[in-house]
Design a protein around this nucleic acid. Structure first.
Lengths: 153, 153
DNA sequence: ATATGTGCAAAATGTTTGCTGTACG
DNA sequence: CGTACAGCAAACATTTTGCACATAT
């Protein structure tokens, strides 16, 4: 079946090769923020005839088309997630590398206003929180954590 | 004369070599956010007997000691600025690479509250705005712009 | 049929490191 | 005088690219 990202690629008139179809599927299925190495690993397991150069070229293409967003949470490798309309931000657990998404709320307008004040049109923003899990004793409750594993810093 | 950063180094008991003194001076005088290449260029012009490896080692050391802060505004190279107590954030002009600093205001508490809500102790935050200069016609005024030149994206 | 994409290996880029000699405290 | 630092070049990690071949439209 045609994956969500593949559908978007077709709509944009991109030539769909076998490799792109596989990478599109991997991206569509991803619920985390994989780096290129990880995308390559997942794609390879679906179809071993894929080179990492193709993964690099494909994520670059999809980013240019606005289909993917590149993230940099430190650690020197870029990570990717499908573009979502409806802003969200990221909290990164500095001990485990887990990434938790949260809604922007007031930040969006706040940043737009700052840009405006300084005489700029807002192009994009970046807001990340790096945190450490509170000890159980101190911690009241923790709901809806979009859990993901990444490499600790 | 002893530069501001050199004084801090001495206070922290760091061994002050000629090279470190020069790098400390360059950092003290910098009013922008230079990358290692640029620091190396400036340091070399003061004293040519400095290797780029030493610059890398020194900024790493100073960052570990909390004297410098590493920034990543995209473009793949780390940039540095002396630690200031009193948070500020950065707006990056996507066309020119200029960096403008602005005060955090409500963001600080807002992010602390988000971390708290998700069950985390806040370790650090990252907030950047990428913008494009408004056309003169649309633009009312623009006060106090901490101008800096960097490489366009 | 033709433009575009792919694989591979080599290059480019930014950063770190092993080793040997040097210099600060 | 001993420990930590500096210079150099080689190693490293990630990403890009040149070229010959393959494939989608």
């Amino acid at each position: 079946m045609e994956s969500r990202i593949e559908r978007i690629c077709v709509e944009q008139g991109l030539k769909m090769t076998g490799q792109r179809r596989v990478i599109a599927r991997v991206l569509s299925d991803a619920e985390d923020h994989p780096d290129v190495e990880e995308l390559y690993r997942r794609a390879s397991s679906l179809d071993s005839r894929i080179s990492i150069a193709t993964v690099y070229r494909t994520v670059r293409l999809l980013e240019e088309r606005g289909i993917l967003e590149r993230r940099d949470f430190g650690g020197g490798r870029a990570r990717y997630e499908p573009t979502e309309h409806g802003r969200h931000y990221h909290l990164i657990d500095v001990d485990t590398g887990r990434v938790i998404e949260f809604e922007g709320g007031e930040h969006d307008q706040l940043m737009a206003r700052i840009a405006e004040t300084l005489g700029f049109d807002l192009v994009s923003t970046r807001l990340e929180i790096y945190g450490r899990r509170q000890t159980a004793a101190v911690r009241p409750e923790a709901a809806g954590e979009a859990v993901e594993l990444a490499s600790p810093p």
